[in-house]
Amino acid sequence: MALPKEESNRAIITVLGRDQIGIIAWVSGRLAEYNVNILDISQTIINEFFTMIMVVDINPTNLELVALSRMLEDEGRDKGLQVKVQHEDIFTFMHRI
């Protein structure tokens, strides 16, 4: 069984909600402030509904994933966006053997 790498410290950030100007600027700005490196971004808009999936490397930052998650979720809620920050292992475990 392929185990995820012990040191894997990548997180998946998902943002869902009505499209508006500056969503990516807001997320990436926040991540830069906290020294979080963006590895990949994928974004689509279907019927004005915005979906973004971002893979980030949280190794360079001291900030706990939990704290990052809480901050983005709270700020996202104010903008009417549903933001989730989850360690990548949850997706690895569910979809990969």
Partner: peptide
């Protein structure tokens, strides 16, 4: 080069 290691559908399925 880095690519998404998961399909969009997989990520959305987990969240849903």
């Amino acid at each position: 080069t880095m690519t998404l290691t998961f399909a969009r559908e997989e990520i959305q399925q987990t969240i849903s």
